[in-house]
Design a protein around this nucleic acid. Structure first.
Lengths: 235, 235, 235, 235
DNA sequence: CATGAATGAGGGTTCATTCAT
DNA sequence: CATGAATGAACCCTCATTCAT
């Protein structure tokens, strides 16, 4: 069909676009490692160029500043994490269960991939500022839970901050030292308590089996599993 | 007479030491402002040099790296804040009241001095890592409260992290946007709840009048009140 | 055709490599002059940058320290001198004649290019330390001569040091003041005597016509001929 | 007597002058060590100030530049060495014996004090340039020996250069590596040969017992014996 | 004279960015 | 689009030197 013909005519451009996309991915992957090592707010372009095997000039065909690169890494990571978690908790109807399972999944995911933990710990509050899909569904669940009377917090904003703060510290702790396997559950329980969830219910919510969080085969997360997360060499 | 002589011998070193100390203070003050504007992890040395009116060479007689400068600022600030707060809550006997009043004092203090809020928000988790006098008394109070049966948290470490995380986010929020006058009390209540303090008691603990937090006349905090806290120039 | 393609693919790297090599040469040439003026152990980078017409940044793409630059100059010069001399004496079979003709050629060469004389005089003993091709063949000739009974020095090492020392001082003298045309021959004769060569033979060995020492057209030596050798500006 | 009185009146100035002289000595001593470590042509003022325990400002009451300091060290050292050697060979009448014994004494002296060897090796040809008392008597002895027909060198200058060159290399060798005890004698023999002294006589001249070279108790040489001669830390 | 804080010139080094090929 | 040489701004750091005390 004419379709075939037009595809053939598109062949070279399409190959080029694929190559471009592959290079872009390589740069993002290298940048994730570099940022995880040195923290954000530090120049990583030279390191990224070297480890991605791309020339200096080419780099600027993809990203124009360090910040742009960081944003790309953040976006890609957020997207992947969101997919994994949403996929795991999508079927849960109860807002409170969704929330607590989401938090647990998030922390377990971070805990299983050191490079990601390092990156997020280094990013700190910056990750919270920029609205990420990961946090998009939280307020809704929170409000739903309040409405259902399951938790009693007049101020949803304060609640959100407490959740975010606790999560941030937990990620930091996970990145910097060894944590027990049930560390995510303990953190989640403390968060639930702060939302005025009764102790017994908090325990129940954090004792259910965790749904399997699938990671896409070619995703950034999948690749990140294989990488070492060396701390920044002091100095 | 001999008095004159001995005075003469003491005089020069003393004058020199005073001068040195004054310059050091000027540098630290300038650095607090600079860090509050740009965040830590950014070079502020040129700006500090300019605004302290000191030559490049002189700067390096006092601090050899950006990190050393940051540490000096952090130490000075921590010390001043610790004095103010400890002075305010020193007389409180009940551990839980000490804790909650301490948190409230801390947040109100931060809230009243924008430069400090900006600085601490920019420092983020780094301030928690390095043991500061501000956090020194916390664990003791927490343990005492647990022992007294007032709160029931098996894991003190997790509790500490939640407190620190909530505090961190609160500081961040204070620095970045306008907060209601009772914002510190709301945060403190959420924290108390997460420690399993009953709602009624949490409300009671955060409804007492706040003891006056005195700020030393020549201290960094006192000076910081006068300074503007410009946000980082976008870039 | 495929020819065109492969040429195209080779073309860019080759051009780049050529450009790089040309810049490197310019830097080395400028450095030779600078070192000849100020001696080694003095920073010449700013002067080299200025006189080579290269930016500061570019310089560090080639050499990272003053010492690295010096080494490059030394290597290039040693190589050129070695080529010239070896080319001149290669056909001589008698070890003693090779040696004495080599020394004479070396000193005449130095004497004919003031910039080189200045450079070597400034380098002093450092040039002897680092094994240079110039000195590579000496020990072999010396040993051969000893074996042949022509000279009687039990200790070859001591002999080498004397040769090197005499050569060093001669270069220094040549650089610092005007020397008679037969100065190299006089020095060579003294060296031969110190090796216990009989006076008559020493005279004979230093009276032969000197083979022509060819200098490669584009070599450092050839270029150096054109340059002035200003003494260090007093300071 | 009035003498007593005037002495009394002079007391403070005299004490001051003595103190001044003592400080000056301390600086020279520290500088000798510093130069021996780093070579000449390198800034040693900070190190000298530190190790002599003198303030920055005071240093400039004694020496105004690095070069002036170096010259003072060189002068003091030359004077001490000259005294020691002249004292040892003063009684020798035969010019050739004076010469050879002087060379031997010089090299043995250098060999016995590593710091001095390091310093002289670092100074290199610079020490020869500036006329030192050590070399003052050489030409006279050399000419006397020529006149006596003991050696036959038409060109005294060339002979001097060869002696200086050999001495220089020998010092360098002594400083940089371990040398056999009779190393000075071997070098001296080679020098004598280069002056056309017959082998047998050269051996005889270098086989006599070496006169004791006395070192003044408070002299730079005496102190230098106690110091370590660390090589420059590579870098 | 001694002291040591302060200075500023100069050199060293990195890195984002441009551009000819 | 890829390449990598070249650039210049910015920062880092040392040190000789001055000067008030």
């Amino acid at each position: 069909m004419s379709d075939t013909v037009s595809n053939t005519e598109d062949h070279r451009p399409r190959v080029a676009a694929q190559r471009r996309e592959r290079t872009r991915r390589r740069l993002i992957e290298s940048a994730l490692v570099a940022f995880s090592r040195h923290g954000i707010g530090v120049t990583v372009i030279p390191e990224v160029i070297a480890s991605a095997g791309v020339s200096q000039g080419s780099f600027y065909n993809y990203f124009r500043t360090n910040a742009e690169l960081l944003e790309a890494v953040g976006d890609a990571l957020n997207l992947d994490m969101f997919s994994s978690i949403e996929n795991a908790i999508g079927a849960i109807g109860d807002p409170l269960a969704r929330m607590s399972t989401g938090i647990r999944s998030y922390l377990h995911l971070v805990r299983s991939i050191p490079v990601v933990a390092q990156f997020l710990a280094g990013a700190g509050v910056a990750l919270v500022d920029k609205k990420s899909p990961v946090f998009d569904h939280f307020p809704a669940d929170l409000k739903a839970a309040v409405k259902s009377g399951r938790i009693s917090e007049a101020n949803v904003e304060v609640a959100m901050e407490l959740v975010a703060g606790a999560g941030l510290m937990a990620v930091h702790r996970i990145a910097k030292s060894k944590t027990p396997r049930d560390y995510p559950e303990r953190i989640t329980r403390a968060i639930l308590r702060s939302l005025a969830v009764p102790e017994q219910e908090a325990v129940a919510l954090t004792s259910t089996a965790l749904p399997k969080t699938a990671i896409e085969p070619e995703s950034l997360l999948e690749k990140a599993k294989d990488w070492q997360s060396l701390q920044t060499p002091s100095r």
